[in-house]
Simulated scan of single mutants.
Amino acid sequence: MALKIFLVRHAKTDWNDRGLWQGNSDISLNQAGFEQARRVAQRLSTQNVQIVYTSPLSRAYQTAKVISDTLKIPLIIDERLRECEISLWNGLTMEETLQRFQREYQIWSSQPDAKIEGVESLGSVQNRIVQFLQELIQKPFESTVVVSHALSLRTLICWVLKIPLNEYRNFGLDNASISLVEFQGRLRLIYLNDTCHLG
């Protein structure tokens, strides 16, 4: 039987609504975000999920807690699921980032192992979340939920699809979206960025 791994991007925050980089800033869900989390939980309630893993950051943990409470299943925090550290441009819009840090951003987004102070490389993010996934597929579950962040999940999906890390911007991951990865001897992406449950 295939192991189902539902990858959930955390639900909405006020910073998401304003288009601001969040990184490891600990921003909570807003009211719309909690409603999105409830809809994710409702969508997953038919999937025989046995456990939820989450990033420790509030927006992911709160999303995961709604899921675990609704489905009445255990919730485990794993540091490897946290978002990319981007303190250099946290709280800025993309436009502001490019005005102030265009060179740094271009290096970071194109070179997986870029060394820029205040910014974790995409390669580092991918290494830790892939390590998490490789441990997860050894566990005796049939269906799990992993709640994390846009950048972290994109690096993971790049690895599953065997595409270069600097292609991470070529697909979207909306707030409270669900992507499904299955493992049965090999990993396969079944669907990506599904938001039909948000109506």
Rank of each mutant, 00 (worst) to 15 (best):
L153F: 06
V130T: 05
D69A: 02
K65M: 09
L180H: 09
Q111S: 15
D194W: 13
A2K: 14
I86S: 08
K162E: 07
E104G: 05
Q62V: 07
R80D: 01
D17S: 14
E95R: 12
S143L: 02
I27C: 09
I51M: 03
G199S: 10
D174E: 13
G123Y: 06
S179R: 13
Y105E: 08
L189D: 14
R43H: 15
N48S: 15
V145W: 00
V66G: 09
T97Q: 08
E135F: 07
L7V: 08
E117N: 00
F132R: 08
D26Q: 10
R103Q: 15
A32L: 11
F171L: 10
F171A: 03
L57R: 05
I76T: 10
L156R: 05
F171N: 03
D69C: 04
L180W: 04
T63G: 02
S152K: 00
R39D: 12
N16P: 05
L88W: 04
S68Q: 01
L156Q: 10
E95T: 09
D17L: 15
A2G: 07
K4A: 03
T54Q: 08
Y61A: 12
S109A: 10
W108L: 08
Q36A: 10
G118R: 12
I178K: 06
L165Y: 11
T195Q: 03
S25N: 00
R39F: 02
C158G: 02
Y168V: 10
I5H: 05
R39I: 11
E135T: 11
H10M: 05
A114Y: 01
I137A: 09
V119R: 06
S55A: 07
L98F: 12
Y53S: 03
M1L: 14
A114S: 01
L187I: 06
F141I: 14
N90G: 14
R188F: 02
N24E: 14
R43Q: 15
E182K: 13
L29D: 11
L153V: 04
E182N: 11
A11G: 08
K72L: 04
K139L: 12
H149S: 00
N16A: 04
N90A: 15
L7R: 12
Q131W: 12
Q50K: 04
E95N: 06
K4D: 13
R38L: 05
L44E: 13
I86M: 03
L81A: 03
E79C: 04
A32Q: 14
L71N: 14
V160H: 13
I76E: 13
I5V: 13
L122T: 00
L98H: 09
D17Q: 14
T63L: 02
K115W: 04
S177V: 08
S152N: 01
V119W: 06
S179M: 03
